Amino acid sequence: MEFFDLQEIRIIDIIDVVLVAALMYYLYKLVKGTVAINIFVGIVIMYGIWRLTVFLDMLLLSRILGGFLGVGMVALVIVFQQEIRKFLLMIGSTNFSARKRMLQRFNLFADEELQTNIPAIIGACGKMSRSQTGAIIVLKRNNSLEFVKTSGDRMNAEVNQPIIESIFYKNSPLHDGAILIEDNMITATRVILPVSNEKKIPQRFGLRHRAALGITEKSDAVCIVVSEENGQISYLKEGDFVLFEGLDELQRLLEKDLSL
């Protein structure tokens, strides 16, 4: 018995399956490792039971479950508000500036983009880590960061290791708060960042890490934090900690993320 005819499969059907698979993959990435994954699995199970009751023509139970799932859509938006925000940011970050960078790689634009001096940033972070100097560095990617830049002091200095170290020197008037780096320029210091209310953050992480999580939740920026307590360097992206081994790997991560 034939279940389907291969000749009836259209190109649009294949595209449809690929897009659904990609959507499910990104949804899984967003909820992986969070409490939301358990809620998501529960919803899938409830939906499967509802479809089974409809198939078996169990009118009363199917109507109850159908009504519950219908009202539950509002609750889903509340429960998954952070994940939905990340998903929309991920889609919205594919903007004209990102496309321009892609075209520049193929030399379709005459002007060359100013590349961020990543070795200087990594060198400064390594030295501040050894001296246990607290620091928080925000690196802009595609989304505008004007909503936090206005909270700090404007600056227009090219990125280099001595400047970064001098800003976060403990007796410097500029060390309190974050610095904002756009392309290869330090554009603001003493920036006040939105603090994350995420409950899963371990207690050993302080206000700097919560602020780094907050800005990476509300934008596609990446953030480096140097702990004042133990000198540990943390790298944050998309509202989560990114694990790495050593400064060389951190540099490769930055080069990759800032090229997107």
Rank of each mutant, 00 (worst) to 15 (best):
Thr187Ile: 15
Asn171Cys: 11
Phe80Cys: 03
Phe109Thr: 12
Leu114Lys: 09
Ser151Trp: 11
Met73His: 09
Gln203Glu: 01
Ile78Gln: 00
Ser131Val: 11
Ile78Arg: 00
Gly72Gln: 01
Arg154Ala: 08
Val138Glu: 03
Pro173Asp: 09
Asp153Arg: 09
Gln115Met: 04
Leu103Asp: 13
Asp111Lys: 13
Gln104Gly: 10
Phe109Gln: 14
Asn117Ile: 09
Asp176Tyr: 06
Glu146Met: 06
Val71Phe: 00
Phe109His: 15
Gln132His: 03
Asn117Tyr: 11
Lys140Thr: 14
Thr133Glu: 02
Leu145Thr: 12
Thr150His: 02
Ile84Leu: 15
Thr187Gln: 09
Asp176Gln: 05
Phe109Gly: 06
Leu89Cys: 06
Asn156Ile: 14
Lys200Arg: 13
Ile136Asn: 06
Pro173Phe: 15
Arg85Phe: 14
Val77Asp: 01
Leu145Trp: 05
Thr189Trp: 04
Met185Leu: 13
Glu146Ser: 11
Ile137Met: 01
Ile192Ala: 01
Val79Gly: 03
Ala75Phe: 03
Ile91Val: 15
Asn107Asp: 12
Lys140Ala: 12
Ala135Met: 05
Leu114Thr: 12
Val195Leu: 14
Gln132Lys: 07
Ile137Ser: 01
Asn117Ala: 14
Ile167Ala: 01
Lys140Glu: 15
Phe106Thr: 13
Pro202Gln: 09
Glu158Gly: 13
Asn171Glu: 13
Arg190Gly: 02
Leu88Trp: 13
Leu103Tyr: 10
Met73Pro: 05
Ala178Asp: 02
Val148Leu: 01
Lys199Tyr: 03
Thr116Arg: 01
Val195Met: 07
Ser144Val: 06
Leu114Tyr: 07
Ile136Thr: 06
Lys86Pro: 13
Ala75Trp: 00
Glu112Pro: 12
Val74Ser: 00
Val74Trp: 00
Leu88Met: 15
Glu165Gln: 04
Asn142Cys: 10
Ala120Trp: 02
Glu165Asp: 06
Lys199Asp: 10
Pro162Trp: 00
Asp183Ala: 15
Arg99Asp: 14
Ile201Pro: 00
Val159Thr: 13
Ser144Cys: 05
Ile136Met: 01
Leu193Lys: 04
Arg190Asn: 04
Met90Cys: 09
Ile122Met: 09
Cys125Gly: 02
Asn160Lys: 11
Glu165Cys: 03
Ala98Lys: 10
Arg190Ala: 01
Ile163Pro: 05
Val71Gln: 00
Ala188Val: 04
Ile192Gly: 01
Asn142Asp: 07
Ile164Thr: 12
Asp111Gln: 15
Pro202Phe: 08
Ala157Asn: 06
Thr187Trp: 15
Ile118Gly: 01
Asn142His: 10
Asn95Met: 11
Ile136Arg: 02
Val195Asp: 08
Gly92Asp: 11
Val159Tyr: 03
Ser131Arg: 10
Gly123Asp: 07
Phe87Trp: 08
Gly123Pro: 10
Lys127Phe: 03
Leu76Val: 04
Ser93Asp: 12
Gly70Asn: 13
Glu198His: 05
Asn156Tyr: 04
Arg154Glu: 05
Pro119Gly: 10
Asn184Thr: 05
Arg190Glu: 08
Val79Ala: 02
Phe80Thr: 02
Ile192Thr: 07
Ile179Lys: 00
Lys170Asp: 14
Glu83Ile: 13
Arg190Cys: 08
Asn142Tyr: 05
Asn117Trp: 07
Gly72Thr: 03
Ile201Met: 05
Asn107Leu: 12
Leu139Val: 07
Asn156Ser: 09
Glu113Lys: 08
Lys100Leu: 13
Phe147Asp: 03
Phe80Val: 04
Ile186Ala: 02
Phe80Tyr: 07
Ile91Trp: 14
Glu182Asp: 04
